[in-house]
Design a protein around this nucleic acid. Structure first.
Lengths: 153, 153
DNA sequence: ATGCGTGCAAAGTCTTTGCAGCTTC
DNA sequence: GAAGCTGCAAAGACTTTGCACGCAT
């Protein structure tokens, strides 16, 4: 298991998979590359990814996508985000300087990204205390945006 | 909308509901009280809550439970947690000294709770910057436990 | 009296799984 | 060659919704 700051390439992914007796495939490479080139702050649901790839002429089944993103999340390659929507979103797990967190409005469902280095520091301290290795840490602030505060409901 | 540190009672809940043109009901009171008396650190899924109430002779439909916990989460009364499982868990949204966060192992699915006051401080600062009111904040650290590190897969 | 809330059953959404065939090691 | 991986279709888990009746305001 590699740390959250590994910069995965198809080669390092292949190596890690092979070490576990698993295999590199074209599908896995395409998915990894898609996340690696995703603009910072953008995150995709399984279906988003499916459609995006389809548009690019890459026909990867939804099953494979679900299987792959879950695997990559468990490996620490992707961050699994559960924000306001009722399905998971994924984004590449960036090393420290790019790591960000989310501020979500319960009324408007707006999501704001923000950075804060202390959070990773705290996480590492806590994890160390329990002997855990950190793959990812996510601070999600749930609140009400200025627009949301104006509405009664 | 009230702050995360409000200590809800059936009366304050009724007042807040009425102010919005909504209503207090026996079901809502039972659900609120159940969460209020839940041991710290315990959190329930909709189905957990349904069964627990049934055992106590309180027959509240699953639909109502889903509707109520979602409403209470939006009001900031409950925290909506998405940890390792594929369904949401709820717990009362405690004021600061009892607020806790989660350290999750991707391999064993173990969840450890921990407290850290700095996290709420950081959240409040961030929220303020954007003009948000904080209802809840959750730091989730995803990692690998010592036991998990021993297994290859 | 009004209209929100509940319970029921049905529908919906997102995700997982079994299996046959293909691909990687 | 053996075993993992993919795609398809079907199943599954959890959650939401329409509607008629009852209850809070």
């Amino acid at each position: 298991m590699t740390s959250a700051t590994t910069d995965y390439t198809p080669e390092t992914l292949r190596a890690e998979l092979n070490a576990k007796g698993w295999r590199m495939t074209p599908q896995r490479e395409v998915i990894l590359n898609t996340f690696k080139t995703l603009p910072e702050g953008e995150h995709l649901s399984a279906e988003d990814l499916y459609n995006r790839l389809k548009d690019q002429g890459e026909d990867i089944s939804l099953s494979t996508i679900y299987r792959t993103v879950k695997m990559m999340a468990r490996m620490g390659i992707l961050r699994e985000l559960e924000l306001t929507e009722d399905h998971k979103h994924y984004e590449i797990n960036q090393p420290r300087p790019h790591h960000h967190h989310h501020l979500v409005c319960v009324k408007t469902n707006t999501v704001i990204e923000f950075k804060n280095d202390k959070i990773l520091e705290i996480s590492q301290k806590v994890a160390e205390k329990y002997g855990y290795k950190v793959l990812d840490c996510q601070l999600t602030i749930i609140g009400v945006s200025p627009e949301g505060q104006r509405s009664i409901f």
